[in-house]
Design a protein around this nucleic acid. Structure first.
Length: 850
DNA sequence: GCGATTGA
DNA sequence: TCAATCGC
């Protein structure tokens, strides 16, 4: 960069933010966006440019100039301005707030003024400040401002424009540049110019006549006649172009230099922003920061003084070695001071968790309950993991380390050093921050009245576990291994050679190359030919192998995913203890892992075989309670659709009712086939399926599927209206909400790519339904758990499977428990349609499903 | 539609 | 990491 020699005082850098937004849009071909759908090309290019500027030039004074949304004086002065300046593409508009945020986080002063474009602000400052000025821009619109005191630097082309350089490059001095461009025009800028006049001719004309006015005043002197004719035809366009190029130098901007001093960057904010924008490389380049959160001391026992503080960060993990469960590593912290208790007992943790006198801030409360061996009834607990999840349930990482880095800018030390104390310190600081954010988002009641107390219920469910019949499972495993061996031999015989029949690649070689069967669709990534159920079932007519393979797959899945893990994970009493992940889904549902007990087969032979393995204690039974059609009922409630609400109010078979509606027949005339189709549509609706998904599910073509959906919406107009309203609301607010005000951000509604946008729309529609279902069953779990304990019953919750609760109940308590469960579940929350619960019980889960 | 798990 | 398959 060549710095201006004229001018007084330090150099001032004026950045034309808008020009970079456009430049980035056209400069990089491949699309760039976050995993959640925000296009980031422009922010990325801009950020890289700004970081480079700050690092290489180290400016003391600079200002980022941006446009405002409001129309400028150009709109007001010229009717046809808008016609010549199409609005900024939506893809770019959504990035503008982030550009502002990046600059703010970097401490760069920002200037924007209603009624003025960035160019006008820069022109005003360039003309009125006495300092040397470098305009940092990604286009040439501002070349006319170049002088001995004002240079223009294009960091993307690495080029400095001095007056000499402008003259050399364009053949006209900077002050004549607007005249020059008024003649040549600029298609990328929608500047018409004079048709047929190129740069050479324009420069020659201006050199000969001096200005645009002069050229037209002495038009008859222009030679050759061809150019004269072009000029005469393009007169209007030329003067319009010039008017559009005129800059205001009288914008009311502060002229005191100190307004434009670069401030200290807010690294914490910048880091959070880069993480959100998924700028991984840039994130790694940020200066490492190790904030000291406070002093850490190691103590033998919990100091008394901690209990007199107002708030405590509380962190614990299992101890080392043989006594990991009895001797915990535990740390507590008040602001600025942490105590590490090397060998605390679960009793210590229990006391702290149960001590309602002060706020205890923890990370993953349910895990602490397990360490404490109990969930004491208490007030004043705050779980930052739950809080962070409620604030944004779409993130993937809710680790304490991640939260500390994001909100406190602190990289926590490893656990063999000061790490334990720092974790407690981080919690003490995160507590008020996240509490405030939760309250501000209206998520307080959901956190403190639902999710936090639910942690205790889930802890008890996990600890009790589910009993499995190990003898039965062992026999089943043996039988399955036997059958798999036979199937394997048979498949090798049919294939004519042995191969790895669990490998899709090898299977597709056998099927499509060796046996010459017709290839079907590709795998989702398009790299291989698919061998999924759909393809294999279709091939079953032509060859016996596919059918055998499908059976092999089903049996193998049963053995390796269900039977073997259950045997492995069962404890000495034959009980398996799943872990419910309370922060694992974007919709608010729970998930279950090690083992996942929420996807135990239910249909077909496999379902029966495996569910018979889940049994009750001697003298107890399993009681299953599932919400009937909870999602469609919620759809009826939200949409207020009369037709749908009536069907539920009258206790009708909802799939049959839907079939009658869309086929225009009376309920009696509904055939099983019609009902099946209606059922798929109803399910599709609840899961946010597209017409495309529906067509695949039903094996019909897209047009037909569309017609079915259209027919549905005609019969249930309230549903259509509600869907449109939800999408509109998501567009306006950026998120959707559930019955209990749970939130989920919906990015991508403004995406230019149709698939991305439609995906976002489906998410926006599906989440309130699925998420409210989660709200209701969580509320019901709290109520059922509370009632059972209040009434002194031994019956207990053991599993939750999204719309089903599974309880283990002493035989003599069955009747009373059934009444309680039905009452609490059906009356969980008043909706405009009734909630219905199906109850079933038996010695095992298969019987309890009947 | 979402999430968990298995196996190459 | 991807493909396939289970549940809701």
């Amino acid at each position: 960069m060549v710095l201006p020699k004229a001018g007084e005082g330090p150099v001032v850098y004026l950045i034309d933010g808008t020009s970079f937004v456009y430049r980035a849009h056209y400069a990089i071909r491949e699309p760039l966006s976050t995993s959640w759908g925000l296009p980031t090309k422009a922010v990325f290019v801009f950020t890289r440019m700004l970081l480079r500027l700050l690092k290489e030039v180290r400016p003391e004074y600079l200002v980022l100039c941006l446009d405002e949304k409001e129309p400028t004086f150009r709109h007001e002065a010229y009717e046809d301005y808008k016609a010549h300046r199409p609005p900024m593409p939506e893809e770019l508009v959504v990035q503008l707030p982030y550009i502002r945020e990046v600059a703010e986080a970097l401490g760069v002063p920002i200037l924007s003024l209603a009624g003025y474009e960035a160019d006008d602000l820069i022109a005003t400052l360039a003309v009125r400040l006495p300092n040397p000025v470098v305009i940092v821009a990604g286009d040439r619109d501002l070349l006319c401002l170049v002088s001995e005191r004002v240079h223009l630097w294009d960091p993307l082309r690495e080029k400095t424009y001095t007056p000499e350089e402008v003259e050399r490059r364009y053949g006209v001095p900077p002050e004549r540049f607007p005249d020059f461009r008024a003649l040549t025009g600029d298609p990328s800028d929608n500047l018409p110019g004079v048709k047929g006049i190129g740069e050479k001719t324009a420069a020659a004309l201006i050199r000969a006549f001096g200005s645009l006015e002069e050229i037209y005043r002495r038009l008859d002197e222009v030679t050759p006649p061809r150019v004269r004719k072009l000029l005469s035809e393009g007169r209007e366009a030329a003067f319009l172009s010039r008017r559009l190029l005129e800059l205001s130098t009288s914008a009311p901007v502060p002229l005191e230099l100190e307004h434009y001093r670069l401030r200290e960057p807010d690294w914490t904010r910048l880091r959070a922003l880069f993480r959100k924008l998924e700028f991984r490389r840039l994130l790694a380049e940020l200066p490492a920061e190790r904030l000291s959160l406070g002093e850490v001391v190691t103590v033998e026992d919990l100091p008394r003084e901690v209990l007199s503080s107002e708030r405590l960060g509380l962190w614990a993990r299992p101890g080392e070695g043989l006594f990991a469960k009895e001797l915990l590593s535990l740390s507590v912290a008040t602001e600025g001071r942490a105590w590490v208790v090397q060998r605390a007992s679960p009793e210590t943790l229990r006391r702290l968790l149960g001590f309602s006198g002060l706020e205890r801030v923890v990370h993953d409360l349910k895990a602490l309950y397990h360490l404490a061996g109990e969930a004491p009834e208490a007030e004043g607990l705050l779980d930052v993991k739950l809080a962070a999840w409620l604030l944004d349930p779409t993130r993937r990482d809710y680790s304490l380390e991640g939260l500390a880095e994001e909100h406190l800018g602190a990289r926590l030390a490893s656990l063999d050093g000061k790490g334990m104390g720092e974790r407690a310190l981080a919690l003490a600081e995160l507590g008020p921050l996240l509490r405030e954010a939760v309250e501000a988002a209206g998520l307080g009641p959901l956190l403190f009245e639902v999710e936090l107390p639910l942690s205790a219920v889930l802890f008890r469910m996990e600890r009790v576990g589910v009993r499995v019949d190990r003898a039965y499972l062992s026999r089943l495993a043996e039988d399955l291994r036997q059958e798999l061996a036979e199937l394997e031999a048979e498949i090798y015989r049919l294939a004519g050679e042995p191969f790895n029949l669990r490998s899709g690649r090898q299977l597709s070689r056998i099927l499509f190359q060796k046996l010459g069967l017709p290839r079907g669709k590709r795998t989702p990534k398009g790299t291989d030919f698919s061998t999924d159920v759909e393809v294999l079932s279709a091939l079953a007519e032509r060859h016996p192998l596919p059918e055998r393979l499908l059976r092999y797959r089903a049996r193998h899945k049963l053995l390796s995913t269900y039977v073997e893990p259950l045997l492995r994970l069962a404890d000495a009493a034959g009980r398996v203890h799943t872990t419910f992940n309370q922060t694992g889904t974007a919709t608010g549902r729970l998930s279950s892992e090690e083992p996942n007990l929420q996807n135990i087969p239910i249909k077909g032979e496999e379902g029966e075989l495996i569910r018979r393995a889940f049994v009750a204690e001697e003298g107890w039974v399993l009681l299953s309670a599932d919400y009937s059609q909870i999602e469609l009922r919620l759809l009826a409630h939200f949409s207020g659709d009369e037709n749908l609400r009536r069907a539920f109010a009258e206790g009708r078979d909802i799939h049959a009712a839907t079939a009658a509606e869309i086929f225009g027949v009376s309920p009696k005339e509904v055939t099983p086939e019609m009902r099946r189709l209606a059922k798929v549509i109803n399910f599709g609706l609840a899961y946010g399926m597209s017409a495309y998904g529906l067509s695949k599910e039903l094996g019909i073509d897209y047009k037909q599927a569309q017609a079915f959906m259209e027919r549905y919406f005609e019969r249930y107009p309230g549903v259509r209206r509600w869907r449109e309203e939800v999408v509109e609301e998501a567009r306006k607010r950026g998120y959707v909400t559930t019955l209990l005000k749970r939130r989920r951000p919906i990015p991508g509604l403004a995406a230019p790519e149709r698939p991305v946008r439609e995906f976002a729309e489906r998410t926006a529609i599906n989440t309130p339904i699925q998420g409210s279902g989660a709200d209701l069953i969580k509320l019901a779990m709290l109520k059922v758990d509370r009632r059972l304990r209040a009434e002194g019953l031994k019956a207990r919750l053991i599993l939750q499977v999204h719309d089903e609760l599974l309880l283990e109940v002493p035989e003599e308590e069955l009747k009373q428990t059934q009444e309680i469960v039905r009452e609490e579940m059906e009356g969980v929350y008043p909706l405009s349609v009734p909630l219905k619960v199906n109850l079933a019980w038996g010695r095992n889960w298969a019987e309890a499903k009947a």
